[in-house]
């Protein structure tokens, strides 16, 4: 029963609130960069509520179950992974739910749900966008896996998140070492792609394929996808903080530190997204399989050498 509480409170409500706030920060900063005023704080929430009031349209001949079920699967997996991260961060000796490998696998499900939703819409543009999303996954998965294992190597080959946190508590954060820093840079690039933000928003590319997988979504389905994406805006940086920055701590000044770390990460993501143009899919894959994989390999080798 206690897990149910964790899930509803931490996994869903808290994550959603922080995610919506982060989304507001992102939009506000973007607006300021473009000399606009930007939306009020509640705007991301208002958007979702408004979408819930809109009519739910389903493309003719599509499998309704898949079309409406895909957003649910994505949302459920984000809630699950968020609960996992929260519990393991709060009590680092717990053996709750899963380890690093589980998190890596759970984090692909939101993308898979978007792909399935796009496929189910029977729209050629959606199929095209979903296939780009899949190619993007192929692209970033290689450097992502390499870089994520740098903390594992550093913390003595443990794949438990708690052990990685404990190691950082005693020996300083992993981003403080050279190998950790390089791996961190690689992972930031990868989560930019995981969040489907510019320059890696190739799958959705509003100006080109009209939202790609989301083109046929409206009303409730789109609202759930929106919520899922906003929650990912919290979950992915949080995952990064646990792996590289010692997680979130709740004693006194450390809490402020944690909030600063998170806001800093969101700021980095926003800055990247506002200063780059969209790349083509083959350029993105080349970027991840080329320079990023090389950087990640270097960081792994340096981690083996103890740097």
């Amino acid at each position: 029963m206690i897990y149910l509480f964790y899930l509803i409170f931490y996994g869903f409500l808290l994550t959603a609130i922080v995610g919506l706030l982060a989304s507001w920060i992102d939009r506000k900063v973007t607006a300021r960069v473009q000399y606009r005023v930007g939306p009020p704080v509640l705007q991301p929430l208002i958007d979702i509520v408004k979408l819930l009031g809109k009519e739910t349209l389903i493309p003719k001949g599509a499998s309704k179950m898949t079309f409406l079920g895909a957003p649910l699967a994505g949302l459920a997996s984000v809630i699950l992974v968020s609960t996992l991260l929260w519990v393991n961060n709060v009590s680092s000796n717990s053996t709750f739910l899963g380890d690093l490998i589980v998190v890596i696998y759970l984090l692909t499900i939101p993308s898979v749900s978007i792909i399935m939703g796009g496929f189910a819409s029977r729209n050629p543009l959606a199929s095209l966008g979903a296939s780009r999303e899949m190619k993007l996954i192929l692209g970033y998965e290689l450097p992502f896996v390499l870089a994520v294992f740098v903390p594992v190597i550093k913390s003595g080959f443990s794949i438990r998140l708690g052990d990685i946190l404990n190691y950082q508590l005693q020996n300083g954060v992993i981003i403080g070492s050279w190998s950790g820093f390089i791996a961190f840079v690689v992972v930031v690039m990868c989560i930019q792609a995981k969040l489907a933000l510019v320059p890696f928003d190739i799958a959705e590319a509003e100006t080109e394929i009209v939202g790609g997988p989301l083109i046929e979504y409206s009303g409730s389905g789109l609202a759930v996808y929106r919520l899922m994406k906003n929650m990912l805006l919290f979950v992915l940086p949080f995952f990064l903080m646990i792996l590289f920055m010692g997680g979130l701590r709740f004693d006194g000044i450390h809490l402020l530190w944690g909030i600063l770390k998170y806001v800093g990460l969101v700021a980095i993501i926003t800055v990247i997204r506002n200063t780059n143009p969209r790349v083509r899919i083959d350029q993105a894959v080349r970027f991840f399989w080329g320079p990023m994989t090389v950087l990640a390999s270097i960081s792994v080798i340096m981690a083996f050498l103890g740097l």
Binding site: L7, K54, I58, P59, S77, I79, S220
Partner: peptide, 23 residues
């Protein structure tokens, strides 16, 4: 449980009466 949460969000919306459209 997560899927149930999603379904509740759906039910808050207009999922009960959907309309089919051309793509």
């Amino acid at each position: 449980v997560g899927i149930v949460v999603g379904i509740i969000i759906y039910l808050l919306g207009t999922v009960a009466k959907t309309r089919e459209t051309e793509i």
